[in-house]
């Protein structure tokens, strides 16, 4: 004779097993539906950002004669403007990591991001949302470029007035050449304001984006500015 409590336990376990089986079957059914949806062969939209070869001007610095020379390079660049500018700056700083460079800098990634902000949004007292700021941008809106540098690059940059000055002017001039819409340039290091590049050149200022190319001249000689 089976005790009554054992019969109750038996029926409870049977109910649980049945419930779990139903739950498992339903879960499998849902998973199959999701997989079927993912396997939809409908063509998806092409990515908005594609790369294409483009000729750009890099303002290359030289420690030898304290000059900055515009140099043409062909780079595969995305169409998205901030990404494009970041890639151009990466290409510029990669030139300085070459053994043949006349302005030797550490060979490591230097630029985290480049942000573009309409200057009108900076001057406006009323705070604007990123959406409002973006909608206010047209092809002629003067922009502030914010270059976010890596702290490792700043840490290993050679310290000295001339060396730091050339690096900064080279970046500013290259940004100006890449996008004349950029009117001013600011620098951050790991997303934070930083006092100096390597102990001398201030990174707390906002620099006008101008053509920084120039050629050397003798003291007391007539200026031979290359670009001004």
């Amino acid at each position: 004779m089976i005790p009554r409590y054992q019969r109750i336990v038996f029926w409870l376990l049977l109910v649980c097993i049945t419930g779990m089986s139903l739950f498992l079957v339903r879960g499998c059914s849902e998973a199959r539906k999701k997989l079927t949806a993912l396997a939809d062969a409908t063509p998806i939209a092409a990515p908005a950002s594609t790369t294409r070869p483009e000729e750009v001007t890099l303002e290359l610095a030289s420690d030898v004669d304290d000059s900055i020379t515009p140099t043409q390079r062909t780079l595969a660049l995305p169409q998205d403007q901030p990404l494009r500018l970041r890639n151009i700056l990466q290409a510029l700083l990669a030139e300085y990591a070459l053994p043949t460079s006349a302005h030797v800098l550490p060979a490591e990634p230097a630029v985290i991001d480049v942000f573009l902000i309409p200057l009108s949004a900076m001057d406006n007292d009323q705070p604007q949302s990123p959406l409002q700021a973006a909608s206010a941008v047209s092809d002629t809106t003067p922009l502030l470029a914010v270059v976010n540098l890596r702290s490792s690059f700043v840490l290993h940059h050679p310290s000295g007035v001339q060396s730091e000055d050339l690096t900064l002017q080279s970046i500013v001039g290259t940004l100006h050449a890449a996008s004349p819409q950029i009117a001013r340039v600011r620098f951050l290091v790991d997303g934070q304001p930083h006092d100096t590049l390597a102990g001398h050149i201030s990174l707390t200022r906002t620099y006008p984006a101008v053509d920084t190319a120039y050629a050397p001249a003798l003291p007391n000689a007539s200026p031979q500015d290359a670009a001004r």
């Binding site: 000059s67 120039y214 050397p216 003798l218 007391n220 007539s222 001004r228």
Partner: peptide
């Protein structure tokens, strides 16, 4: 004493 100076708006760089 050297000759009178040229344009004072000399460029950033100069080499001897």
């Amino acid at each position: 004493r050297p000759e009178p100076q040229g344009d004072a708006t000399a460029p950033r760089g100069a080499t001897p």
